[in-house]
Design a protein around this nucleic acid. Structure first.
Length: 579
DNA sequence: CTGGGGACGGGGCCC
DNA sequence: TGGGCCCCGTCCCCA
C-alpha cells in the first residue's frame, strides 16, 4: 500500500509537471484524482480497511465505507446515520446482485455478468431501485429496453462485464459518482444533447466526466473512459483493453484540434498510465519502452495494454481456465472463495495486516493479477471453478455457497469473528481463519454443505447415538433429520428471524439485528469519557452513570444506591431471599 | 472460599 | 424500526 501511494504521488507529480510544460497557466488540479481516489477506496474496501459499515444480505456480509454508500444512494445515506449494520431486504436484493451493486458503486462499472440476460438486469434493476441507485437503475432500464439500441457492441466485455462508456451517453454526463471537475461538467452540459433521462446517464463516465472536453470525438472518449474506469482491476478484460486501447492509440496522437484539448482533457489523458504505474510500475516501464514510438501518455496506455496482453495468460484461454490456472498457481486450494478473500489471501503471504498492505505492491504480473481480483468476474469464475473441481454442478453449487458465506464472514470485525461456516469455529483474524479453512477437505465441505445450516446447528449428542439430531433451540433430540425439521418448524413459527451467523432464531427482527451486532462487534455508541463502546444507546446511558456517579436506584429497605436498576433488583433478592 | 457490589452482555417485549 | 425497559446471566473485584 505504501508503495502504491508513493507511486500514486509520483504519478500526480508527473501529471502536474506535464501541465507545467503544456500550459502556461498552471492549474493545480490533479488529473485522474477522482478515479484514483475511487481506486484506493475500492482497494480499501477489499481489505476492509477503514470500512465502517457492514451490509447484510441474506447470508452474506459486505464491508464498505459509509461515505461512499451515502454518496451513492439516498437510501444508504438515510440508513447510515446511526447504524453500522444494514440489513437489506432479501426480496429486493440477493448477495450476488448486491455484490455487483457494490462494485458498481466503487468503480462506476458493472462487473461481469456471465450471461447478460433480462433476468440479470431485472434483478439489478430491482436492487438499484430499492437502494435508490438511480444511475444503476438507468443502466439496467436501458439494457432492458433493448441492448442493440442502447449499448454498442463494445459495451459488453468479453467476460460479460458491462462498461459504462456508451459514447452518446457519455456526452450527457453531468455528474458522476465522483466528479473531479465542476467546470468540466459544465462543458458537457453545453451543447450536448441530453438523453431522454438525464439521470439515467449520469454515471456512464462517472470515473471521468471530463473526457469529452478533449473533443467531440465520441469514440475517443469512449475508449479513454474505458481505460480510466479499468486500470489494473482485472486481466480478464484485456481483450477489450487491447481492442479499445488500439482504438485510442490511433486517434489520440492525431487529436488534431489541439485547441480542443482543454486542461481537463489533459488531466484525463493518462488515466491508464496512472493506474497501471500505480499498480505495476515495473511492467509499466517495460511496456512503455516497447512503445517508444508512440507519443504521449496515450501511447503509453497502448503500451501498457499491449504489454499486458503479451504477458498475461494466453488470449485463447477462456476466462475460467485462466482463472483456474491462476488459482492453482497461487497454491490456495480453497482460495477460490471470492474476490475479497482472494485479494487478502494473496497478500497474506506477506504475513501481518501491514505487510499485506505493503506487500501488495505488484512488481510482477502475478501480483498485478492479484490486485485485479477485485473484480467480480473473478469471483463468479472462481465459484464456478470451485464447483467444477468439487464435482458440483454450476449455479447454486455447494462450493459457491461456501464461497459466499466465507466472503461474508471475512467481512466481520472483532475477536474470533472470522467464522468458518462449515465447522462454525471462530478465529481472531482472517489469516487464522484461512489457515483453518485449509484443513477442511473438499469432500468434507461438500458433505457439510449438503447438510446446510443443520450441519452447524445439529451435533450428535453424547450418549444419544440413536437420536443424534438436536434442536438448537430447545435441545430436544431426534433420531432423524426429518423429525428434527418437523420439530423446528414450531420454533420457526414463533421465531421467524434467524441469525445468519449462528442460526439462532428470534421473535423480532430488531432483536435479531441487535444480536447480529454482537457477532460483528459493532458498537456504535461510544462513551466520550472513556471511549468504551456499546451496542445499545441504553447501555451507554447506563454506563455514563459510572462517570457521573449518579445512583438513581435506591433500595427502600436499606437505602443502598445503585447505578443500574438490575443491580438494585439483584440486591433486593438478597433482602428477600430466605437465606 | 464466599457473598455482595459494580459493570456489562444478551434476549424478550412493549411502545 | 428503534428506543427503552426488564430480565437473566456473567465476570471481576473486594471485604
Amino acid at each position: 500500500m505504501r508503495l502504491l501511494l508513493v507511486e500514486y504521488e509520483e504519478d500526480r507529480i508527473e501529471a502536474v509537471c506535464r501541465l507545467y510544460i503544456s500550459q502556461e497557466k498552471v492549474e493545480m488540479e490533479l488529473p485522474n484524482h477522482a478515479r484514483q481516489l475511487l481506486l484506493q477506496l475500492n482497494q480499501q474496501r477489499a481489505k476492509g480497511f477503514l470500512c465502517d459499515v457492514i451490509i447484510v444480505v441474506e447470508n452474506a456480509l459486505f464491508r464498505a465505507h459509509k461515505n461512499i454508500l451515502a454518496a451513492s444512494s439516498m437510501y444508504f445515506k438515510s440508513l447510515m446515520l446511526h447504524d453500522n449494520l444494514v440489513n437489506l431486504d432479501t426480496d429486493m436484493v440477493n448477495p450476488s446482485v448486491f455484490r455487483q451493486v457494490l462494485d458498481f458503486i466503487y468503480t462506476g462499472r458493472l462487473p461481469s455478468i456471465d450471461q447478460p440476460s433480462d433476468k440479470n438486469f431485472n434483478a439489478l434493476l430491482t436492487a438499484a431501485s430499492y437502494l435508490q441507485l438511480h444511475d444503476l437503475a438507468a443502466v439496467c432500464r436501458k439494457r432492458l429496453k433493448g441492448i442493440e439500441n442502447t449499448f454498442p457492441a463494445k459495451s459488453v466485455m468479453s467476460n460479460g462485464a458491462w462498461e459504462l462508456h456508451k459514447p452518446e451517453l457519455s456526452t450527457t454526463v453531468t455528474q458522476g459518482h465522483v466528479s473531479s471537475s465542476e467546470d468540466c461538467d459544465d462543458t458537457h452540459r453545453q451543447g450536448e444533447p441530453l438523453n431522454d433521462k438525464l439521470s439515467d446517464d449520469e454515471t456512464f463516465t462517472s470515473s471521468s466526466p471530463c473526457l469529452l472536453s478533449a473533443g467531440q470525438n465520441g469514440n475517443r472518449s469512449n475508449v479513454a473512459n474505458i481505460n480510466i474506469g479499468r486500470g489494473e482491476e482485472e486481466d480478464e478484460d484485456d481483450e477489450d483493453d487491447q481492442e479499445l486501447g488500439l482504438d485510442l492509440s490511433k486517434k489520440s496522437p492525431e487529436s488534431s484540434a489541439t485547441e480542443e484539448i482543454s486542461p481537463q482533457s489533459l488531466r484525463e489523458e493518462s488515466p491508464q498510465s496512472d493506474s497501471i504505474s500505480g499498480a505495476n510500475s515495473a511492467s509499466s516501464e517495460d511496456c512503455s519502452t516497447q512503445h517508444q514510438d508512440l507519443e504521449g501518455v496515450e501511447a503509453m496506455d497502448v503500451g501498457e495494454q499491449a504489454c499486458e496482453q503479451s504477458q498475461v495468460l494466453p488470449r485463447a484461454d477462456p476466462p475460467r481456465q485462466r482463472s483456474r490456472q491462476a488459482s492453482r498457481k497461487k497454491n490456495w486450494p480453497r482460495k477460490d472463495k471470492g474476490k475479497i478473500n482472494v485479494v487478502e489471501q494473496t497478500a497474506q503471504t506477506g504475513g501481518s495486516e501491514e505487510s499485506k498492505v505493503s506487500g501488495e505492491q505488484p512488481s510482477s504480473r502475478c501480483s498485478l493479477n492479484s490486485n485485479r481480483s477485485f473484480h467480480c468476474g473473478e469471483d463468479g469464475e472462481n465459484e464456478k471453478e470451485h464447483s467444477e473441481e468439487s464435482g458440483q454442478s454450476e449455479g447454486e453449487s455447494l462450493g459457491a455457497n461456501y464461497v459466499y458465506r466465507q466472503e461474508g464472514f471475512e467481512a466481520v470485525v472483532g475477536d474470533n469473528l472470522y467464522v468458518c461456516i462449515p465447522c462454525g469455529k471462530g478465529f481472531p483474524s482472517s489469516e487464522r481463519l484461512n489457515a483453518h479453512v485449509e484443513t477442511h477437505t473438499e469432500e468434507e465441505l461438500c458433505i457439510k454443505e449438503e447438510a446446510e445450516d443443520l450441519s452447524a446447528r445439529v451435533a450428535p449428542t453424547a450418549g444419544t447415538e440413536l437420536q443424534p439430531f438436536e434442536c438448537s433451540v430447545c435441545n430436544k433430540t431426534y433420531k432423524d433429520l426429518a423429525a428434527l425439521q418437523q420439530h423446528e418448524k414450531g420454533h420457526w413459527l414463533s421465531r421467524p428471524f434467524p441469525c445468519h451467523i449462528c442460526g439462532k432464531m428470534f421473535t423480532q427482527r430488531g432483536t435479531m439485528t441487535r444480536h447480529m451486532r454482537s457477532h460483528l462487534g459493532l458498537k456504535p455508541f461510544a462513551c466520550e469519557e472513556c471511549g468504551m463502546r456499546f451496542t445499545r444507546q441504553y447501555r451507554l446511558t447506563e454506563h455514563m452513570r459510572v462517570h457521573s456517579g449518579e445512583k438513581p436506584y435506591e433500595c427502600q429497605l436499606c437505602g443502598g444506591k445503585f447505578t443500574q436498576q438490575r443491580n438494585l433488583v439483584s440486591h433486593l433478592r438478597m433482602h428477600t431471599s430466605p437465606a
